[in-house]
Structure formats: C-alpha cells, structure tokens
Simulated scan of single mutants.
Amino acid sequence: SGYWTGLVNTKYRQSLFTFPVLGVYKLSPRCRISFGPYFSVAMANDFSGSVYEGYLRETDPTGDKITFEGDDKAAYDFSDNLRMIHWGVEAGFSWRAFKHLNVDAHLDWGLSNIFHSSFKTVNFDLYPIYLSVGFGYAF
C-alpha cells in the first residue's frame, strides 16, 4: 500500500439480494412514482485489478519510489474487504405506455461505502449507484 500515481484497471462485480421498502404514489391512472430505502445482502463479491505505467510511494507521498514501466504490472484483489450488507435509497417511475405495455425505471443510490470501515488501502469512499430500465407486458 502507499500513494499511487499512474494507470489502474479495476474489475468490480457484486451480486446482491435486495429488499426495497417503497412507498408508491399514483400521479395518474397511467403513471406512478415510488421512493424508499433498500437493504441488500451480497451473494458474491469481486474487486480486483492491476496497476501499471506509474509509480508507488511507500508509506507517505515522499516515501521510497517504486516505478512500473513497460509491461510491469502489480495485481491486487480487495474482494475480501467488501461489505456484505448495503443500504441506500431507491426512486422509481412506472408508466403504462399502452393498454398492455408498462415502462419502468428505478435508480438505486447506495449510502454505505462498498468497503468495510476498517479498510484503508482505498482512502476514499465508493458508493454503488444502479439504474434499471425495463418494460413489461400487462395481461
């Protein structure tokens, strides 16, 4: 760990089982909005990647310099440091476009950092934000 300056390639994947608690307001017979908190439990976690074309300063910004040039890469895997429980807010919109066609959009905005609070290697918070857009056939 240390202070990195250079390029980063990160893969983040997380499978979540989510419990939304939403209030729904009917704007018109064809439009509805929803809003409320959600709680998620992670089923699978992956946060890994590599750093390259740059340098690492060990301990502090003036520490020993380790340079990565050309094909030199350093891999990392912080999957074990990801939270298992997440929470946030969800806002949604549903519109009955035609007699049998619904169009939906939901935005989930995480309020909990994806990493445990004790994890200090990534020294800024990362919050999950998801947008889902879909359609459905109403019988």
Rank of each mutant, 00 (worst) to 15 (best):
A138Q: 13
K65C: 05
M43Q: 13
K65Y: 01
F98W: 13
Y12D: 01
F68W: 14
I129P: 00
M43Y: 03
I33Q: 02
F124K: 09
G2A: 13
V133I: 12
A74K: 08
S50F: 11
Y76Q: 01
G2L: 11
F17A: 15
P37G: 07
S48F: 02
G134V: 09
I33K: 05
S50C: 11
G23C: 11
L107F: 02
D125P: 01
F47Q: 08
V21P: 02
F35D: 11
L101A: 09
D104I: 08
P61L: 09
V133Q: 00
F139Y: 10
F124V: 14
H116N: 14
G54N: 08
V122E: 00
S40A: 11
H100Y: 02
F139H: 10
K65V: 13
S15W: 06
P29V: 09
T10M: 05
I66T: 12
Y137L: 15
L131M: 02
V122K: 00
F119P: 01
W4M: 08
Y3E: 11
G136Q: 08
P29K: 05
K26P: 01
G134I: 10
F98Q: 14
I129W: 02
Y127F: 10
D46P: 00
P20R: 10
G134C: 06
T5M: 02
Y137M: 11
D72G: 04
G36N: 04
Y3R: 07
Y76A: 07
D108F: 08
L107E: 00
P29E: 11
A138C: 07
F78S: 04
R32W: 05
F119V: 10
Y55L: 10
H100W: 07
A75Y: 01
R57C: 12
G54E: 08
V24I: 09
N102S: 12
L126E: 08
R57I: 06
H106M: 14
